[in-house]
Design a protein around this nucleic acid. Structure first.
Lengths: 220, 220
DNA sequence: GATTATCAGTCGTCTGATGTTTGTGGAAGG
DNA sequence: CCTTCCACAAACATCAGACGACTGATAATC
């Protein structure tokens, strides 16, 4: 028996638009064709098209401005939802979760790091040192985050990398201007990962993140 | 200049429906009033209502069955998106991330655990022992997950708890039927948390999770 | 008793009209 | 030449009505 695969018009349109975005045909900042144009090319009614775009707007992929047009604002729905959730969390919570992901990423990185991973880490670290000497807080924080991101990437765990990346932006806000702090530990961490020394790397990662927060209060 | 916060009709409806759900007025399994009814009570057109429901369907909160009705299927959008993403990840990656969150949760739990937290952990642990003796794999796994979830909950970190909970379902699949294993460590972990012994607890948590996976392969 | 026909209820899609907002280009005034 | 103001076109927002398709239950038929 043949299964007739009937897909709703709206779902098909949602898929079509999302594909255009994920394939890179439309990138953030682009303006979509007008409703009138799209209904004509897709052969559907405005109502159906509007239901589709509305769903994608709610998902955070599109943004509509009355009188102007519809624009692409993001590429990955999951990333949008994640960062929305994280943004609504207390920064202390973000720091704690980040510590956990660091603890998971570092030993994996020590095992799996490639030469390319090492290069990325080295470059970020050099930048970090440079900005520390120059006394440039913004550049320092930026480079520091890039280094830790490179470590996460070296874990070669997609899920972990995605989580970690989502935490990055909110985490930046909770960073003070402690320029140049922890240079020795960071260098040591780099070398431990370089020589596949899992234990030392884990130890150092915990030490680095531990400094960034006041010892966990019992709260309520 | 007064900023009049004009909210679109559709957004208002989306919010109204979502509120009904998050407030618990409508729970998963419930059928929403028919479109005709809702348009009348909300005083809006059917097009607007449909745009709103379509957005929530796409977000995973609602499900529509033509000819039947619209049903609530979930309460938390972020959780839906998260679990979708996690389900698409390799189980080895899920295990690795879970280990990191455990490493983060346990020390926090050791500091912040309340009496209620301890009770929940104790009950899950008793269940775990009971099923281990009875040789009931399903019940054992269930109780084991409940224990670890209780530990995560004792961290009193909402973000961490959400992440952890999302990982739970996919994680269950990657659990073998090793009934009764690790009873001693689990008891020790419980006692360490009970007496606020952060270091011992962390040590034990790492030991417990480490056993659940083969030593991380370098992959590519 | 099993199968088929019918029906009421509900969602799916389309069409056309009207309201609201925005960006822009041109006219008026300096 | 430049600025200000305004009218207009383009684009989205919302509405109202109509018709089709699907579901579940009931009635009719064999």
């Amino acid at each position: 028996m043949l299964k007739v695969n009937r897909v709703s018009t709206v779902d098909a349109v949602i898929d079509a638009i999302r594909t255009q975005i994920s394939e890179g045909e439309w990138v953030p900042g682009d303006r979509l064709p007008s409703e009138a144009e799209l209904t004509k090319t897709l052969g559907i009614s405005r109502a159906s098209l509007r239901e589709a775009t509305r769903a994608l707007v709610h998902a955070g992929l599109l943004a509509v401005r009355q009188g102007d047009g519809t624009y692409v604002v993001a590429v990955d729905e999951a990333a949008v939802t994640l960062s929305r959730k994280i943004t609504n969390s207390k920064s202390s919570e973000v720091v704690e979760v980040r510590r956990g992901l660091d603890a998971a990423a570092v030993p994996l990185a020590a095992v799996r790091r490639t030469e390319a991973d090492l290069t990325a880490m080295r470059e970020a670290l050099d930048d970090r040192n440079r900005h520390a000497e120059a006394g440039d807080p913004d550049g320092f924080v930026e480079a520091d985050l890039r280094f830790h991101m490179a470590v996460a990437q070296a874990s070669h765990n997609e899920l972990l990398i995605d989580f970690y990346a989502s935490l990055n932006v909110p985490f930046r806000k909770s960073l003070g201007g402690a320029v140049g702090q922890g240079t020795r530990e960071h260098e040591a961490l780099y070398r431990a990962i370089e020589r596949h020394d899992t234990e030392a790397a884990t130890e150092l990662a915990l030490a680095i993140v531990a400094r960034m927060e006041p010892p966990g209060p019992p709260e309520t």
